[in-house]
Amino acid sequence: MNEKIIEFDRVVAGYSPSLTILNDLTLDARRGEITLLIGPNGAGKSTVLKTLFGLLVPRSGEIRFEGRAIGGRSPRSLLAEGIAFVPQGRNLFGSLSVLHNLELGGITLPRGALAGRIEEVLHRFPRIRERIGNQASTLSGGEQKQLEVGRALLLHPRVLLIDEPSIGLSPKLVQEVMGLLRALADAGTTVVMVEQNVRTALKYANRALVLETGRLALDRPASELLGDPDLNRLFLGGAGSPAAATAH
């Protein structure tokens, strides 16, 4: 078993004092693995990532990164530690150009390093290179997601948090993004991914954590869950079909 890089230890967190979303949540993610977070809408999957990234402060419990407590630290200081976050939905600065978006993604990098890192990302995403001077809002949904992922990779993160990367992407692009995440993980990056496209994501993930109302309901190796004939029943409340698993 790989070393635990990220640990939630009985974490309680929410958006206001009266609204608890993460309910005594304990989980972990391991080095070089893709940890898949799944569960019904509103289960708190995105909240897990936001809390981990310092956008929400846990009310109690402890969050550890490589064994050190990081609860309550700012996103900026976590970025410096090597944690990057690609949130759910649209995250670009639409009024700025593609290049400017990339430059902003590297704002915490030392000056000399930025150009080289951008070149790396453009090498990985040739589509983005073609659109480099365009306003980010004019990119297609798939291109925007590629740019977001590329922007996060600029920092060579050791941990990549990514929330529903497949939304709005064609099946082929979904495969591409998942393949990229797999390659990153194999190269040592720890990936924590939230995904509704469960069947596809399970093929690429190492472990699956099922979240229900802010608690861990299930923790299984991805391959095991994928082979489970009860896959749909397990976390789609029995009503699901594979098609429903991809619908959002």
Binding site: P75, L79, A80, F93, L96, L104, I107
Partner: peptide, 20 residues
């Protein structure tokens, strides 16, 4: 390049914060 952060701030402060 660093002044661009002002535009990022205008467009969406939370996104800007997420980028550091």
């Amino acid at each position: 390049p660093w002044g661009r952060a002002f535009a990022a701030l205008r467009d969406n402060p939370i996104r800007a914060e997420s980028l550091g």
